[in-house]
Amino acid sequence: MSGKKEKQLGEVLIDVKGLCKDFGDNQVLRGITTQIRKGEVVAIIGPSGCGKSTFLRSLNLLEVPTGGQIFFEGVDITNKTVDVDKMRQKIGMVFQQFNLFPHLTVKKNIMLAPVKLKLMTKEQASRRADELLERVGLPDKAHAYPAMLSGGQKQRIAIARAMAMNPDVMLFDEPTSALDPEMVGEVLEIMKELAETGMTMVVVTHEMGFAREVATRAIFIDEGVIKEENAPEIFFSEQKDQRLKDFLSKVL
């Protein structure tokens, strides 16, 4: 067991209360309530279409909730008066499809937001980018364009880009689902290292190995609600919910 899991959990970073999301008649989230504490690594699993991605995307308002509240660092971000852009600067996001900016070099991808938002000077951002490229193991790709990279490399750069903003929490939306199997490992390795630094992470994933090894908590979402959540060692060994049992028996 890693040292991280034994560590005392910090204060509540994200507090979700009765979160609902409808797309027309389609109720995707039907009242999700949970808390994410500083330093936690939360793995969210569930069958496709269960609402797990919608839940994650609600946390930085890429999906606007139709009901309930989300408090981020004590502020209700579902309140219309909240400065969404300011709030998002503190919430990093990594997408399934990487979404790197194809017209910019790797380094400029990383530097764009901190520089344009005037959080860093060009020199500071450049140093930070070099540091992050070192950390994700791709210092030689600084001047490459995204099209020249493999999927795994793109995702590592996407992680570095999100990290450049020095976020308080990182959201991962199926970060390895679009990758060729041989590239999954390198991305998970980076995520594991990130978790070991104490970064708060919320990860929607199908990688049960990662959830078991790295996560401090696993959440099973089905039919728009949390059916079960627990520490991984319990989550994967003794399930109360029949749907979770069925789901795990299929994927494990």
Binding site: L62, K86, Q89, I91, F95, Q97, L112, A162
Partner: peptide, 21 residues
Amino acid sequence: DTGQMEAGRSLGLGYWQTMGY
């Protein structure tokens, strides 16, 4: 792709900044 706008916005860039850059 809409993912480009989402990526820009998720970094904290505003709508018009993402549009422009």
